Measured scan of single mutants.
Amino acid sequence: MPSETPQAEVGPTGCPHRSGPHSAKGSLEKGSPEDKEAKEPLWIRPDAPSRCTWQLGRPASESPHHHTAPAKSPKILPDILKKIGDTPMVRINKIGKKFGLKCELLAKCEFFNAGGSVKDRISLRMIEDAERDGTLKPGDTIIEPTSGNTGIGLALAAAVRGYRCIIVMPEKMSSEKVDVLRALGAEIVRTPTNARFDSPESHVGVAWRLKNEIPNSHILDQYRNASNPLAHYDTTADEILQQCDGKLDMLVASVGTGGTITGIARKLKEKCPGCRIIGVDPEGSILAEPEELNQTEQTTYEVEGIGYDFIPTVLDRTVVDKWFKSNDEEAFTFARMLIAQEGLLCGGSAGSTVAVAVKAAQELQEGQRCVVILPDSVRNYMTKFLSDRWMLQKGFLKEEDLTEKKPWWWHLRVQELGLSAPLTVLPTITCGHTIEILREKGFDQAPVVDEAGVILGMVTLGNMLSSLLAGKVQPSDQVGKVIYKQFKQIRLTDTLGRLSHILEMDHFALVV
């Protein structure tokens, strides 16, 4: 994948999101292997301009796509893939009243899908469409860049269908997702969380590099694949309309690839034109409109599966009536509230959605109805927002919020430890010299600072030695090549209790 991002070429006709291997024109390309080798690009942008032909009021008969309808489940399912879809609609009884809503608040519980998330729908649909058009064949390999849930859905379907599955996901995604993927037989590649989507090191860039190296491999490409919004247009939206008897006044959905909100909203605009569509985008993402909503100094966020630093091709923002931004604290607070007060075992993005819903639905009156999409299960986040310690460490809970008995030293300040200034190293000294210094002084790690004293990161003896043994660096290389740029900081005025929580999850903390 090139470091400079080429513009994806656009073909003359058809839909841009065809499933299957992508040609340089962004659509299915038939021909000899030699032709494909000559024409197939190194990668295709996940934010390529959409060429979708959908228009409100256009006859369904003019759609270029294969459409399906929700099917009634048999008493005995032939395999677990038949437990994807037909998820329950559940009334939220307490939270709406707590925040003064007059309307009825309903939750579409997508964590009841077989793999635990709304992404099971698009995973199965992308595979079925690729099999139907002859792209996927027995023994082929599926590769997908994902925040985890699409990966789980694909790995689940691949396990049943017999495909090899490789999932490329950023490091910030939970260990629970990784464990589930491994249990399903998927191979996992992790990428830096802070890598831009168009960087060769991003999950998108690495996935395309693997595709170019592995024979008979395919990126189904949830960011561009029409099967993504079509899955929701054909099934999720129809289920909502049936469950609500066609009567709903507002739908609120958090947005990642945009397939969920695009597919549902398009069908609702056709069948229930008075329904307002509300999009939820986390602070630090750029999906919301108008652009002024996205202006923030924050560039990272903890909530998973929603928000991006690019506009995915499948996201149709014209069908969203209003956007709201959400933050991590309210997302996790509301997710825990949904679990504790409503018994809905949902993930953090569901918290984002409901946090926005109780604001947006203030305009609705008694007798009206708001539906929220709860995308995934708490299963993926047992060591994250479900953990009091994690919430404390991230600053989303305060010590006084917890009532468990603490040891005698818990409320003492870090400054009472009488710490001395640490050994520091410059980023320009060599790895070999740094190892000598650390061994001589008896230290395992040291902060790396520039000549102005600005902290650049941390270097550890173990990481340097393993990097040297693996051949990633040489003793003569500058130590700046092996620094940890993500590390926890703590102030002298913070409590030892807070430091204790940090050290339970990290090997060190830097006192500043």
Rank of each mutant, 00 (worst) to 15 (best):
S3P: 10
E4P: 10
T5L: 04
T5Y: 15
T5V: 02
P6Y: 10
P6I: 02
Q7H: 14
A8V: 15
G11L: 09
T13Q: 08
T13Y: 02
C15T: 11
H17W: 11
R18Q: 13
R18E: 11
S19E: 10
S23P: 10
A24K: 10
G26V: 14
S27A: 12
L28A: 10
K30Q: 11
S32K: 05
S32W: 14
P33Q: 14
P33I: 03
E34V: 11
E34P: 04
E34S: 04
K36T: 07
E37Y: 15
K39F: 04
E40M: 03
E40R: 05
E40W: 11
L42W: 03
W43Y: 15
W43G: 10
I44W: 03
R45K: 15
A48Q: 09
P49L: 07
P49E: 09
R51S: 10
C52F: 03
T53L: 05
W54V: 06
Q55P: 02
Q55A: 06
L56E: 10
L56F: 14
R58W: 15
P59V: 03
P64Y: 03
P64L: 09
H66W: 09
T68P: 14
A69I: 05
A69P: 10
A71Y: 11
K72P: 09
S73T: 15
I76H: 06
P78Y: 04
P78F: 06
D79Q: 10
I84E: 07
D86F: 10
T87K: 06
P88Q: 05
R91Q: 09
N93L: 13
K94Y: 10
K94N: 13
K98E: 13
L101M: 05
C103Q: 05
E104Q: 14
L106E: 07
L106K: 08
A107I: 04
K108C: 00
E110N: 01
E110A: 02
F111H: 01
G116I: 06
G116T: 07
G116V: 07
S117F: 04
S117N: 06
K119Y: 01
K119R: 05
D120Q: 05
S123L: 07
E128N: 07
D129R: 02
E131F: 02
G134D: 07
K137C: 02
P138Q: 07
T141K: 09
I143H: 00
I143P: 01
S147W: 00
G148F: 04
N149G: 00
N149H: 02
G153D: 04
L156Q: 01
L156E: 00
A157K: 03
A157M: 09
A158T: 05
V160H: 01
V160F: 03
V160R: 14
R161Y: 11
G162Y: 10
C165L: 07
I166S: 08
I167N: 07
V168H: 03
M169N: 02
P170G: 01
K177S: 00
K177H: 01
V180G: 02
R182E: 07
A183W: 01
L184A: 02
G185V: 03
E187N: 07
I188C: 03
V189P: 07
R190P: 05
P192I: 06
N194A: 10
F197A: 08
F197N: 08
F197G: 05
D198C: 12
D198M: 06
D198W: 04
D198P: 06
S199A: 04
E201V: 04
E201I: 03
H203E: 05
G205I: 06
A207W: 00
K211D: 04
I214L: 07
P215V: 04
N216Y: 07
N216V: 02
S217E: 06
S217R: 01
S217Q: 05
D221T: 05
Q222W: 00
Y223L: 04
R224Q: 09
R224H: 12
N225E: 00
S227N: 14
A231N: 04
A231G: 13
A231S: 06
D234T: 05
A237M: 04
E239S: 06
E239T: 05
I240P: 00
Q242S: 13
Q242I: 12
Q242F: 08
Q243H: 08
C244V: 13
D245C: 14
L248E: 01
L248Q: 08
M250W: 00
L251F: 06
L251G: 02
A253K: 05
A253M: 06
A253S: 07
V255I: 06
V255Q: 07
G258L: 00
G259F: 00
I261T: 13
I261E: 02
T262Y: 00
T262A: 15
K267W: 08
L268D: 00
E270C: 05
C272M: 11
R276N: 13
